[in-house]
């Protein structure tokens, strides 16, 4: 069919097998699972950006005392409701000017603030620095979210593992409880708990955790059911390894992706509940600031001083968006099939 090309005769010698095996080892280097996950996550620009944004927010919250320009609870009633002013820069919206009866007035001059006094995001009705309150408020909201999520994990993971691992009657009983808890809208459970417990940080955390664990427990149970039947777990059982050892050595590592991803969806949920409770007035008590209380205060003055609500609203939404998107990115990174 084709012309036979001219080829020197010595090329037609049989190769021995060793040569073959050597050439076979050529291939692309393989990545471990975690390396692969990391590579996929960082190749996702959106997720990486969210990670950076969240990292910054967390850093600022941790170092709040150093970063915040003022004491967040220090009142200076004579400086109340000052508009944002960023140094002497004349940026519209950040120049300390306020519309009063149709005229632009320098609000800082009006209250007789000495030169050099400025509040980047303005002050609230008690003359407290809004930027400092937002930094501290974010810190408090994050603390609530992280602690609530931790409690969530501490209840949800063991509950799910026990339910899935034991199966049978234990499982049926535990699932009934889950069913009942999830039949009451989360928020109502949280509100009931908030009414019974004294308002405060601990109560909020307990209240949020009490409802949040259900989803985690469900997911972990379903996964445990699957893992239980895996060969390597069966092997470990046959070899007589103790249940706790199997759980820590075989189950938790394989559940980790589920746990991490679910955590990324629990955190915004907890932030939302805190904000919600504080917004309706049964959350973090005054004078401490959280994103919820700031929104609540901001809403009262929103019609005339919109910046007081915009700032916390943007931060809250930013955290929620970033955690949601990061959660998506992590899910795609852990389970590439889910996205493609």
């Amino acid at each position: 069919m084709e012309q036979v090309p001219k080829i020197p005769k010595e090329k037609f010698k049989l190769l021995n097998k060793q040569d073959n095996e050597a050439s076979e080892s050529l291939g692309t280097p393989s990545l471990t699972y975690l390396q692969d996950v990391r590579r996929r996550l960082f190749s996702n620009k959106v997720a990486t950006a969210c990670l950076i944004i969240l990292g910054l927010i967390v850093l600022i919250s941790i170092f709040a005392p150093a970063v915040a320009p003022h004491n967040p609870n220090a009142q200076k009633v004579e400086y109340s409701n000052l508009p944002p002013k960023l140094g002497n820069l004349n940026i519209p919206g950040f120049n300390g000017m306020q519309d009063m009866g149709g005229k632009e007035v320098d609000a800082y001059k009006q209250v007789g603030a000495p030169k050099g006094t400025y509040y980047i995001l303005g002050t609230d009705y008690l003359g407290r620095d809004l930027l400092s309150r937002i930094i501290y408020g974010t810190r408090l909201s994050l603390i609530v979210a992280v602690l609530a999520t931790l409690v969530d994990l501490l209840i949800g993971i063991p509950y799910g593992i026990v339910s899935g691992w034991k199966g049978g009657r234990v499982d049926t009983f535990l699932q009934r409880i889950v069913e009942i808890v999830s039949s009451i809208p989360n928020l109502i459970v949280v509100i009931l708990m908030m009414i019974i417990l004294k308002p405060g940080l601990t109560s909020i955390i307990i209240a949020i955790a009490l409802t949040g664990w259900v989803t985690m427990a469900r997911l972990i149970r379903a996964q445990t059911f699957q893992l239980k039947e895996q060969e390597y777990v069966l092997a470990a059982r046959t070899l007589g390894e103790s249940s706790t050892k199997i759980a820590s050595k075989h189950l938790i590592p394989n559940l980790s992706s589920t746990i991490i991803i679910q955590t990324m969806f629990t955190i915004p949920n907890a932030i939302f509940f805190e904000a919600f409770l504080s917004f309706i007035g049964i959350g973090i008590p005054a004078p401490n600031a959280s994103l919820g209380t700031l929104l609540s205060d901001g809403q009262k003055a929103f019609r005339f001083l919109p910046y007081q609500m915009w700032a916390p609203a943007i931060i809250l939404s930013l955290i929620m968006i970033a955690t949601n998107l990061l959660g998506d990115g992590l899910r795609d990174a852990f389970d590439p099939q889910s996205s493609d």
Binding site: F276, F279, Q299, F302, M320, I321
Partner: peptide, 22 residues
């Protein structure tokens, strides 16, 4: 859809009320 999920309804409500109504 992420915006819809992330912006709490009460924030949205206040914003809508301020701009579209007030």
């Amino acid at each position: 859809s992420i915006l819809g999920l992330s912006i709490p309804s009460f924030v949205l409500a206040v914003l809508l009320q301020f701009y579209l109504a007030f």
